[in-house]
Simulated assay, not measured.
Amino acid sequence: MSGFRGGGSRAEKADVQRRLATATRGAQLLDRKERILQIAIKGMQEKADAARSTWQEQAARAALWLQRAAGLDGQDRIREAAPDETATVRLEWGGAMGISFPQGAECILPEPAPIGGSSALAYALATHREALQAAVEAASASRALLLVSRELAATRTRQRAVENRWIPSLQEQLAEIERKVAEQELEESLRLRWSAGLL
């Protein structure tokens, strides 16, 4: 943003007034965006907390059944039960207020291989699949919260810059222009009166 350089014309005054109106409107829009993002973050925080809690519960269940399966079936049988293919994740992206973030996630798990062994091994396999899906959902919710929180921080920074630097600078420029215009008008009035012999 360039500082005030001119001598004080009405055109300069109109230009600064226009820029000041734009800056004021920008600050209002940033304030509105900040309030909307705060509401969105509150909901996202609740979703992320619930997803994390679900994942922790599922992970604890999976760990318990894995421990039981290890005691009953041994590590070799557990390794044999692991699928050959890896799981993949599909994210559903959405957005609001110019931000793109995950709105959901699906964990696509490979078909389980036929296994022998105890029922503890079957439960360990099932609970690990559930825990993995819960982990993906928790990660998706956490990522969405992070992205929107970053946007909120950036919005606050922009709003402070507009309100604390840009608007005061334009107000100073406008005051200086108005002072110079008033001086010019006074000088012109005095010149006209002097030339008319009124002084």
Score class of each variant (00 low, 15 high):
Ala138Val: 01
Leu132Arg: 13
Ala87Cys: 04
Ile108Val: 15
Ala23Trp: 01
Leu30Met: 08
Leu66Ser: 11
Ala81Cys: 14
Ala51Cys: 08
Arg68Pro: 00
Asp84Met: 05
Gln28Asn: 07
Leu29Thr: 10
Glu137Asp: 09
Arg68Tyr: 14
Arg165Cys: 01
Ala175Leu: 06
Met97Cys: 05
Pro114Ala: 14
Leu190Phe: 15
Gly116Ala: 13
Gln56Phe: 05
Ala60Thr: 04
Gly98Leu: 01
Ser2Glu: 01
Glu130Ile: 07
Ala161Gly: 06
Arg10Thr: 00
Leu30Trp: 04
Gln17Val: 04
Met1Ala: 06
Leu152Asn: 09
Ser119Pro: 10
Val162Gly: 03
Phe4Asp: 10
Glu80Lys: 14
Gly94Leu: 11
Asp31His: 03
Gln159Asp: 06
Ala96Gly: 11
Ala120Met: 11
Gly197Ala: 10
Ser119Gly: 13
Ala139Gly: 05
Arg179Ile: 10
Arg165His: 11
Gly104Thr: 08
Trp55Gly: 08
Glu130Lys: 10
Ile41Phe: 02
Arg19Met: 00
Ala138Tyr: 01
Trp194Glu: 12
Ala134Glu: 09
Trp93Leu: 15
Met1Gln: 06
Ala11His: 10
Thr155Lys: 12
Ala81Gly: 04
Ala23Arg: 01
Arg25His: 09
Ala126Asp: 15
Arg19Thr: 02
Arg61Asp: 13
Val181Tyr: 08
Ile99Lys: 00
Arg90His: 11
Asp73His: 01
Trp65Val: 10
Asp84His: 13
Leu190Cys: 09
Ile39Lys: 07
Lys13Ile: 11
Ala51Trp: 05
Gly74Trp: 00
Ala138Gly: 05
Ile99Pro: 08
Glu178Leu: 07
Ile115Tyr: 01
Leu198Ile: 10
